[in-house]
Computed example of a mutant assay.
Amino acid sequence: MTTESPSNFHDLETLSTRELLAGINSVDQTVPQVVAGALPQIEALVEATVARLQRGGRLFYIGAGTSGRLGILDASECPPTFGVPAGLVVGLIAGGDTAIRQAVENAEDDPRQAWLDLQAHHITADDMLVGIAASGRTPYVIGGLEQARLRGIATGCIVCNPASAVAAVADFPVEVVTGPEFVTGSTRLKAGTAQKLVLNMLTTATMIRLGRVKGNKMVDMQLSNHKLVDRGEKMIMDELGIPQAEAAALLQQHGSVRAAIEAGQ
Rank of each mutant, 00 (worst) to 15 (best):
L21F: 00
G37N: 15
N161Y: 05
V213I: 15
R52H: 07
E246R: 15
G71H: 00
Q222G: 00
T203C: 09
A168K: 10
E13Q: 08
T193H: 14
L73P: 02
C78S: 08
M221E: 01
G179M: 05
V176F: 09
V174L: 12
P32N: 02
V104D: 12
L199A: 03
Q33T: 15
K196C: 02
L202R: 00
L116D: 09
A154Q: 12
G185R: 11
G23S: 05
S67A: 11
F82K: 08
A44P: 00
Q147D: 13
A64P: 06
R58E: 02
P173D: 05
Q253W: 01
A154L: 11
S7L: 02
E43W: 03
I208T: 14
A249W: 03
M221R: 02
I123C: 12
V166M: 05
V257L: 12
D230T: 14
A107T: 09
L228S: 04
D220R: 15
M201A: 15
T124I: 05
T81P: 04
S67N: 04
P162N: 09
G71Y: 02
G63T: 08
V90W: 10
V130Y: 07
P80V: 07
E105R: 11
R212E: 03
A22P: 00
T30H: 09
Q253C: 02
T206Q: 06
R212I: 02
K214E: 15
P139I: 06
A120G: 00
G23A: 09
A22G: 01
G179S: 05
K190C: 13
A248T: 08
D117Q: 11
M201P: 04
L73V: 01
G192D: 02
V46S: 10
Q113E: 14
G143R: 07
G57Q: 09
V177E: 11
V34R: 14
I24T: 10
P139H: 09
K227S: 01
M235G: 05
D238M: 12
F182N: 06
I132M: 08
L197E: 10
A191H: 13
T98W: 06
G185A: 05
P79M: 00
